[in-house]
Design a protein around this nucleic acid. Structure first.
Lengths: 192, 192
DNA sequence: CCATTACTAGACAAACCGGTCTATTCTTAA
DNA sequence: TTAAGAATAGACCGGTTTGTCTAGTAATGG
């Protein structure tokens, strides 16, 4: 293993970033939490921004695993695959104590001031949306959702509403908003 | 006028807080932007936190004005009143360049670390939700929405999804997510 | 065995942070 | 006119921030 220190920083950094956000995360606090000297940090990362961007990459690895286990599961009906992804996400949130979605958190905090993060996070969202859209496309062809609905738009909508539910879940430290949102969306998407 | 300076600080502070968030907003930057000496700031406000909390109060004044002009408009059908509130919010967002909702922004940034803000913002949300719920209640009685739906839960859902749409709107600087969300919700709420 | 690179270690620096302090000016009412 | 309080003005403070620098250690490949 070329770089256990790097892994440890990214892991702990992910949790701290989820709780504190970007601006309230101090490098020193991270170093103390991981018992890492400053020299090591700046050996592995160019800057705090570079570090956070790599934490996002790490976060996206788990997102991709979630996508593989849901939208990639051909044994499920297409709509179930889409829903499964968010249920897996919800289970992840629980492990963190319902601190919401890191992409939503950093997006909200930084998109007003830092275009690098804004574009990166928008790109991460688009990855998820395309995965969901693929399911909805298939559901569309099978007639599970109304013929006049646009799968890509429906996928965008689903993710956006999910992020809102995740924010509220973070505020209340409660998963209820997440489940309510999924129930509503999938009832509406099939019926309407 | 007892306190033009105070007003100016709150006004500019609201805009800066909307763009920068809390942690990235420097007192000095605010003072330079408003040409205010530091002594004045700490004469009018106990601390940065106190200031931000008062900015939220100011933000809520416009929210209340929006509620009065929408859910308070008895000439509109109840569902239209609810929708109107969010359309007015969207129009406000446009004036700011689609930087989203300040409550959502500060809630996302601070709820992980500062319970004072978390509770305050959750309370602000509940104010809006109750206004919306009142409309939905009336719509419920009139049979505009399905009898098995719970107006309070539907109001929560609506606000949560709206906040998600606002976040995405902020990321893209684009109102489309807001309108898409409203179209979907009100189509689903009436039909389903 | 040596040399080169990767990594660790933490003192140090410069800038910046929120907040305090004292002094001064402006406003207002007696 | 004068006394009192409100507001302005900015120097100053201690602490914290990200990031740099030099030195030393561990690992690696010839």
């Amino acid at each position: 293993m070329t770089s256990t220190t790097r892994e440890r920083l990214l892991d702990t950094g992910l949790n701290m970033l989820l709780q504190h956000g970007y601006n309230d995360l101090g490098i020193m606090a991270l170093l103390e939490a991981t018992q890492t000297p400053k020299g090591s940090f700046y050996h592995h990362f160019r800057s705090k921004e570079d570090f956070a961007l790599q934490v996002i990459d790490r976060y996206m690895e788990t997102v991709h695993r979630g996508l593989d286990a849901s939208v990639g599961d051909r044994s499920l009906p297409p709509l179930d695959r889409a829903r499964r992804f968010f249920e897996l996400s919800r289970d992840k949130y629980r492990e963190d104590g319902y601190l919401g979605c890191m992409l939503g958190g950093l997006g909200q905090e930084l998109s007003g001031i830092n275009p690098v993060f804004a574009e990166k996070i928008e790109w991460c969202f688009s990855v998820v949306i395309e995965g969901i859209a693929t399911c909805l496309e298939e559901a569309h062809q099978q007639g599970d959702i109304p013929p006049d609905s646009d799968p890509m738009e429906m996928a965008n909508l689903l993710l956006n509403c999910w992020e809102g539910a995740a924010l509220r879940s973070r505020l209340k430290r409660d998963p209820a908003p997440l489940d309510r949102m999924l129930d509503f969306y999938f009832a509406a998407a099939t019926c309407a």
